[in-house]
């Protein structure tokens, strides 16, 4: 039964996650924290840096991690495969039957309508992370400083995550 639930949950995420991994976070959080309680909110928040620090897309990593926690290697496989399944089917349909998919006016308008959706989903994700993840002035300062560095495009994401982690170690643990 768990495997069926994993399959359905990550199928839903796979079908509706437009616009990159971060915008998919509200969808993922809803499925694995709110609906199924597979991860606590705290575990979900820890999963985010873990997913960004390991190679691969964040949604795939979230699927594999959750599947593994709930159902071992088989669970990890089921969750990951069900997330990828819609991609396989859609790309297949488009390649062989819908060559002019994007020129279709309905599709173009639907995709245009997703721009405000992405903004709303990202703001929702930010709300979730900030409310339960940024709980003291130190985290806020790290966050703002890293935001400025990212905007200036001078640093890589992954090194910044490591720096944030090390600063966390120094401040929360060694202090």
């Amino acid at each position: 039964m768990t495997y069926v639930l994993l399959f359905l949950a990550f199928l839903r995420v796979g079908v509706f996650s437009f616009g990159g991994g971060l915008a998919a976070l509200p969808l993922i959080e809803r499925e694995i924290v709110d609906t199924h309680h597979w991860l606590t909110k705290q575990e979900f928040l820890e999963l985010l840096p873990l997913s960004q620090l390991t190679p691969g897309p964040i949604a795939i990593n979230a699927a594999t991690f959750t599947g593994f926690k709930i159902g071992g290697i088989l669970g990890a496989f089921v969750a990951t495969a069900s997330f990828c399944f819609p991609s396989l089917v859609l790309t297949l349909l488009i390649t062989f039957f819908l060559n002019h998919f994007r020129e279709n006016p309905w599709v173009a308008r639907f995709l245009g309508g997703l721009r405000p959706v992405l903004l709303a989903l990202l703001l929702r994700a930010a709300f979730s992370v900030i409310r339960d993840g940024i709980q003291d002035p130190f985290a806020l300062i790290v966050s703002i400083a890293c935001g400025i560095l990212l905007l200036s495009k001078k640093v890589e994401e992954i090194s910044l995550l490591l720096v944030g982690g090390v600063l966390g170690l120094l401040w929360y643990w060694l202090r």
């Binding site: 960004q52 620090l53 806020l140 935001g147 990212l150 720096v163 944030g164 090390v166 966390g168």
Partner: peptide, 16 residues
């Protein structure tokens, strides 16, 4: 402690 620090960076990634 490590993950609390790294999570602050995730917030900046989303903000970006």
């Amino acid at each position: 402690a490590f993950f609390r620090g790294a999570l602050a960076v995730i917030a900046s990634l989303i903000a970006l």
